[in-house]
Amino acid sequence: MALLMNLPSLAVMALVLAYPIYYAGYLSVHKVGIAEIRRGVFPFYDWQNYARLFEDELFWLSLQNTAIFTFVTVSAEIVLAVAIALLINQSSLWTSRVTRWLILLPYAIPPIANGLIWNFMYNFQFGFLNRILFTAGIIGEPINWAGNPDTALYAVTVPYIWRTLPFAILLIHAALQGIPRELYEAAAVDGATAWHRFRHVTLPLLRPIIAVILILRTSFAFAVFEEILAITQGGPGDATWVAAWYSYKVSFAPPFNIGAGSASAYVLAMIVGALAILYVKLVYRRIA
């Protein structure tokens, strides 16, 4: 019975998850270009795809950019999520209730649309962000947010943080509501200031959920794609090439080097896979 009820899921997952993961590994050690796909024969290529990958400076740059992108987005998200979750937890304030009602909005925006909207926000000539700053009298000359190689990578972190922050806020807010009031009352009786209550009551109790968010967000930020495609397309120059963009460009843009693309995707999968195993050990230990 158990097998029968799992059969359809297993079949579909084998088809589009397990087999492709295996097949990506297979492709990554074979020579697969447009000519090989036409002929339908993939010659064995040993570790040459990987060897070339590790010699490619652009690949290392992409990994480095991905690491910076991930570090910036994840650390900003955790700090902001804790702060905003505490803020919307103040249910006696009507503004907090409004914020809480709106907080999920970014989750509903398609990532590619989010990218294009921020493309418009950042536009050098007529972007919305510069318009606001002009009107507020903050800047006198337009700023080229996403077109400057020094700032582009940081510019693309903002839309990504905007879109994915609700998830983190939500988890922390749920955890906050699980903290018994008595703990705060006891702390207040002991004369603890607001900061002390946060530092010694709230924060330690939030630690497990922060670990969950840290792992989930890190592994998803590592595979960022849509915002890069819509805002900078890797540019200016190669300032915003990230790992997923590298795999995509190498495989699906001329000269269609699918073998090398698979190899780079596999490196990405290994990094994320390590995080996934950590997550299982930490969060789903109960099942094992």
Binding site: I21, L27, A223, S251, I258, V272, A276
Partner: peptide, 21 residues
């Protein structure tokens, strides 16, 4: 457990083999 790990698989990793198959 496999499901939990599968949730982490970046879609870009699946794209190339999915395209070929």
């Amino acid at each position: 457990q496999a499901n939990v790990v599968a949730r982490f698989v970046p879609i870009i990793v699946l794209m190339i083999p999915l395209y070929v198959t």
